Simulated scan of single mutants.
Amino acid sequence: MTSVACTLVLIKPDAVRRRLTGEILRRIEAKGYELIALRRQTTTPQVLAEHYAEHVDKPFYPSIVEYMTSGPLVAVVVSGHRVVEGVRSLMGATDPTAAAPGTIRGDLGRDWGTDAIENLVHGSDGEASAAREIAIWFPEID
């Protein structure tokens, strides 16, 4: 029997601005994962403080808030077997310049020279963080 897990994907403001939402979702679905919930929204500093709680006191945190509130983003709950690992593999390395070709960041991202790394997408880094993050962005999901 296989277990099915969920993860959170955030399609960040730079990707929405560049009209890459459909391409990113296409890649996730083409891999065989299911989109369980999807919402386009402009987020708030309060939601980001909860989401990035471990980074709030770090010097780069204000640039993250500025970047993530610079426009709408798309929050998505994605489901499938080994989905956390699979989505992170699809995304590629955090640094879009170093991300491998064939990944979302490797094919579509680049370094724009800003204080925050504008790298198109966020994906939960483990099942525990996925559950925590999904509760923040989709509190209506049990």
Rank of each mutant, 00 (worst) to 15 (best):
P13C: 05
D14Q: 01
A15G: 07
R19N: 10
I24R: 05
I28S: 02
E29T: 14
E29G: 10
A30K: 15
G32P: 07
L35S: 00
I36D: 01
L38R: 08
R39T: 05
R40G: 00
T42Y: 03
V47L: 15
V47T: 15
E50P: 01
Y52H: 11
H55S: 01
K58G: 01
K58W: 01
K58P: 04
F60D: 10
P62A: 14
P62C: 14
P62K: 15
S63F: 08
I64W: 09
M68C: 11
S70H: 13
V74Y: 09
A75W: 02
V77Y: 02
V78Q: 02
G80N: 02
V84K: 03
E85S: 11
E85N: 03
V87Y: 07
S89V: 09
L90G: 05
M91R: 07
G92A: 11
G92Y: 09
T94W: 00
A98E: 10
A98Q: 05
A98T: 11
A98V: 13
A100M: 07
P101S: 13
G102V: 10
G102P: 02
T103I: 02
L108P: 00
R110M: 01
R110T: 02
T114L: 13
T114A: 12
V121G: 03
E127T: 03
R132P: 08
R132Q: 11
E133A: 05
